[in-house]
Design a protein around this nucleic acid. Sequence first.
DNA 1: ATTAGCACTCGCAGCAGTAGAGTGCTAAGA
DNA 2: TCTTAGCACTCTACTGCTGCGAGTGCTAAT
Lengths: 348, 348
Amino acid sequence: MDLDERNRRVLQAVIDSYIESGAPIGSTVLVKRFDFGVSSATLRNIMAELEELGFLTHPHTSAGRIPTDLGYRYYIDSLISVENDTDEFGDQLRQAPSLHGDDLNDLMEEASRFLATLSHCAGVVVAPSEAEANYRHIEFVRLRGRQVLIIFVTGTGIVQNKLIELDESIRQHDLNAFSSYLDEELERGTLKEVRQRLLKKLEEEKLVFMQLMDETCRASREVQERESEKVYIGGAAQMLESPEFATVEKMKSLLKAFEDKYRLIKLLDRSVAAQGIKVFIGSENPYFEMQGCSMVVSNYKVGPNVVGTLGVIGPTRMQYKQVIHVVDYTSKLLSKLLGERFQRGIER
Amino acid sequence: MDLDERNRRVLQAVIDSYIESGAPIGSTVLVKRFDFGVSSATLRNIMAELEELGFLTHPHTSAGRIPTDLGYRYYIDSLISVENDTDEFGDQLRQAPSLHGDDLNDLMEEASRFLATLSHCAGVVVAPSEAEANYRHIEFVRLRGRQVLIIFVTGTGIVQNKLIELDESIRQHDLNAFSSYLDEELERGTLKEVRQRLLKKLEEEKLVFMQLMDETCRASREVQERESEKVYIGGAAQMLESPEFATVEKMKSLLKAFEDKYRLIKLLDRSVAAQGIKVFIGSENPYFEMQGCSMVVSNYKVGPNVVGTLGVIGPTRMQYKQVIHVVDYTSKLLSKLLGERFQRGIER
DNA sequence: ATTAGCACTCGCAGCAGTAGAGTGCTAAGA
DNA sequence: TCTTAGCACTCTACTGCTGCGAGTGCTAAT
C-alpha cells in the first residue's frame, strides 16, 4: 500500500480536483493545473498504476479518473492535513454566530443547522442520553382522580414529563410531601438508590407511595429512552444541491433514509464508540445502504462523559478538510455549552 | 359559470380520470371509459367549450385535456360528494390504528404521520396555541444563584419550561411558597389577573416576588410563542412519489418550502380563520409559491375553542374525496383526544 | 524511465425520420 | 340546430445515425 512520493502527489491532485469540480479528471487537466514536471503520458501511466492498486477508477473507457472509496480512505488517512492552510476557514468558523437556544431542543436544532450551513451537507445531532440521570428535582402534579403527571428536572436543566395512573387516588398535599422528600434524598444518590432506602423504610406501611415510587422509576427510564431517541436533522435539502444526487431516484432514497430516524440513530451511535472524529466513506458503512454518501461524525460531552453523537452526512465527494474542521469545532462548542449548563446544575 | 348537466358530467369525468391516471385525457379515452351516449367528436366540442370557460387546458396541440386550477375549484365546490360511496374508505379509516402518544409532542408527530399515511401526501400539524393558557400548576426550581427554572403545567397536561435570571438570589423554600400561592390563585383566574391582584396586595413590600411574577408572566408568553411555532411534518418523502414532482427542480423547491417552517405556519394559520375544511388549489394560495400543490386544511379544538391547524399538502392532482375525508376524520380524532386531556385537566 | 504519437473507445449532442395520439374543422345527416 | 364521420394537421416521443471531443492505452523512440 505504500506509494512513492510522486504517486501520492498525483493521487492527492486527482482527488482534490475531483472534489472541487465533480467531473472525472483526465491527464491533460492535471498537466494544466499542477506542475509535476512530467508529461500527460507519464501521468496516464501513474494513474493506470493507481487504478490497479484500487485507488482510482473510471466510469467508462474514455473518461477521466475518479477516486474509489479506497482512494478516499487513503486520502483521509494519509494525504489530508487538517491543521495547515485551514486558518482562514477557522476564522470563518469563529465568526459564525454561536448557539444560544436555552431550551435543550432549540439548542440541538440550532446545532444541526449550524453543521449544515457550514458544511453544506446535512447536519445530524443525536440528543444526549444521560445514562443514570442525576435529577435536581422531581415534581408531581395531580390531574384527575388517580392520574398523576411526573415532572423530572435534571441537573442540566432539562425538563421531561410523563403521565401515570395509580391504583388509588392520592392528595396533592401528599404528593408535595413526597416530592420534597425525594428532593432531599436525591442529593445523596440516584433514583435507584433512593428507591432501595425507601423500600427498607416504608415496608408495607404506605402502599401508595411505594407504587408512586415504582411508577416514578419506570417513568424515569421511559422518559430517558424517549429523549435518547431524538435526532435533529438540519439542511437535508442542501444535500440535494450536489450533482451526484441529481437523479430522482437518488433523491428519493436519500430522503427516505432521513425519515427513518430510528435506523439513523442506531447507525450514528454504533459508529462512534470511541472518542474523536471518525470518517465513514461510501460503502464502508454497512447500516446505511445509501451509495455515494460519506459521514463525518464525532461526539459531545457533558463534563467528562460522552453523552451524544453529532455529525454530517453528505456526498462522498465532499470537502473533507473543511467538514472535519466544522464537525470538530461544533462538537467542542456543544460540549462547552452543555458543560456550562452542567456546572450550573451541580452547584447548589 | 353554470354548466348544463352533460357538460358537468364530462368535466367530472375528465378530472376523475386525470386524477387517477395522471395523463392528459383525450376524447377517445372518455368514450371508452364512460357512457355519455355521444361520439368522440361531440366530446371534443364539449371539451373545447370547457376549455373556453377556463376549466380545462391542454399542454400542447395534440395532447388530451387536463384540469386547470379553476377546473379543480369547480370540481371541489360543485361536483364532489364526500358523503356517498366513501363508506368503504371510512371503514378503512376507522380500522387505522388510533393515536396514543401521551406526550403532546408524540401525539402531534403521530398525527402528522397518520395524515401522511392515509392521504399519501405530506401531513402537517401546527402545535396548539392556547391563547390565554389556563395553568394547572407553576413550579420554580432554583438552579445556581439567581437562576430559576420556571415550569408551566397547563390544564391539558402540557409541560413547558423556561430559564430566567433574577436580580437577587432567592431561597428554594420561598419559591415553593410562591408556587403554592400561585396555584391557589390560579384556580380563580388567569395569570394576568393573578398578577393584578398580587400587585395590589404586595405594593412595594416584596420586590423579589414582584420581579419573579413579572418574569413568570414574560416567560409564560415566550413559552407559548415557542410552542405555537412548532410544526410537525410527516411523510414529506411520500409526495415525491407523484410523477408531477419527478423533476429534480420541483423536488428541491418542494423540500426547501418544507424546511422553511415559519412560512408554513403563517400560511396554514392564515388559511383557516373559519372552522371546517378548506381546500386551496395550486395558485390560489399567494403565500406558498409552489406550483402544482394543493392543500386541504382543517383545524382542531380543545373543548369549544379552535387551538390549532392541521392538514395535508400534496400535488394538485390528489384524491380529493379521500383526502378531505382523512383530514376531517383526523381533525375530529385529535380534537377528541385533546378534549379528553382537557376534561382531565379542568376537573380537580 | 519518460515521452511523443497514434489508433481506439465511448459518451454526447444534434438531426432526420416515423409512429401515434389527439385535435379542429368541415360537411353531411337527423 | 345539434350530432357525427372523416380528414388534414400538429405535436411529442422514440429511434437510429453521425460527427465531435475527450481521454485512454499502446508502441516505439529518446
